[in-house]
Computed example of a mutant assay.
Amino acid sequence: MTTPDDTTSALDRIHREIADGYDEELELELEEARLDHMLSEIPGYTETDTLDRKIYFRELFRLQHELVRLQDWIQHQKLRVVVLFEGRDSAGKGGVIKRITQRLNPRVCRVAALPAPNERERTQWYFQRYVSHLPAGGEMVLFDRSWYNRAGVEHVMGFCTDDEYEEFFRSVPEFERMLVRSGIILLKYWFSITDEEQAFRFNMRISDPLKQWKLSPMDVESRRRWEDYTRAKEVMLERTHIPEAPWWVVEAVDKKRARLNCIAHLLSQVAYGEVEHPPVVLPPRERREDYVRHPVPSDMHVPKLF
């Protein structure tokens, strides 16, 4: 017989389980609060208009619920979805990717963040190392930077020749048309921030010991070459904005709005529906008379520091 105390205990456990599931969002909120505190100590700083946290988290949870529905649809219909995230260093690409993947099955939605090509890869067809990361049926792949490295950092920093740069622009429209003809849903996002905003974010990384690792020597050099990167971006958008795979620009000075706007747009680009799932019923656990659970030696336990 179930007593009121049993019911209360069960409800408490359910509450703790739900709260634990949202701890990451709470940690992120604390991170935002920590940032606000750091900002308040900067002389002359005036808080900019940003999205209220309660509204932000409410909408984020709602959109993440829709992302789960999209994931189910992609898996059920065996769709292949590719999403490219491009933009300047510190533009917020990683932040939106984190929020997209947060609730999703990594077997369905995975991230491709390729390092610089090795010696062997540099001798291959340029697109070859990206092709191996394209999705199979029922998968969505998010590229945290993509083959557009050649149009940006490789060109600006002199890592490719002028002939390789021009060949890229001749090839990439046909490459993307081929992907779309094969049935892949291809989305391309450029995260746009201002010169002042990037300088501010870089300075915040310099002063924040938890984020200094994000600032590489290449990032520092990109600040000096802001105008070179701007020209490269403008050429890239002009020459690769094709009907089959258009570019979508995300205004990303306000990170919260950028994340919500990008996720909402992504959801709007795939016509998904509800997938019926059979009810899950836990079977009774088998118990065997001849099984005796063995104790774990005390020296194998992780010390209980907390």
Rank of each mutant, 00 (worst) to 15 (best):
P4V: 05
D5W: 02
D6V: 01
S9Q: 12
S9D: 05
D12E: 14
H15I: 03
R16E: 15
E24M: 09
E27L: 09
E31A: 12
E32L: 09
L35K: 04
M38C: 08
S40E: 15
E47R: 15
L51F: 07
K54H: 15
F57T: 09
R58Q: 14
E59M: 10
L63C: 08
Q64H: 09
Q64W: 08
R69H: 06
W73V: 02
H76I: 03
L79R: 03
V81D: 04
V96T: 15
I97R: 02
I97N: 01
I100G: 00
T101Y: 03
R103G: 01
R107V: 04
C109T: 14
V111M: 12
A112P: 02
A116D: 12
E121M: 06
P135C: 08
E139L: 05
E139Q: 15
N149D: 12
N149Y: 03
V153M: 07
G158F: 12
G158T: 13
C160H: 13
T161P: 06
Y165P: 03
F169V: 11
R170D: 15
S171W: 10
V172A: 13
E176I: 10
M178F: 11
V180E: 02
S182W: 08
I185Y: 02
Y189E: 10
S192V: 00
S192Y: 03
T194G: 12
E196S: 13
F202T: 00
R205S: 07
I206H: 06
D208G: 00
D208L: 00
P209T: 10
K211Q: 14
E221H: 07
S222M: 06
R223Y: 05
R225T: 07
D228Y: 08
A232G: 10
L237V: 01
R239H: 10
R239T: 06
I242V: 12
E244N: 06
A245N: 03
P246Y: 06
P246V: 08
W248E: 14
E251L: 02
E251I: 01
A252F: 07
V253C: 10
D254G: 05
K255V: 09
R257M: 11
R257F: 02
R259S: 09
N261R: 02
I263D: 00
V270S: 02
Y272N: 04
V275F: 09
P278H: 08
P279M: 07
V280R: 13
P284V: 00
R285N: 09
R285G: 10
E289Y: 10
E289Q: 14
D290C: 07
V292Q: 13
V296A: 04
P297V: 08
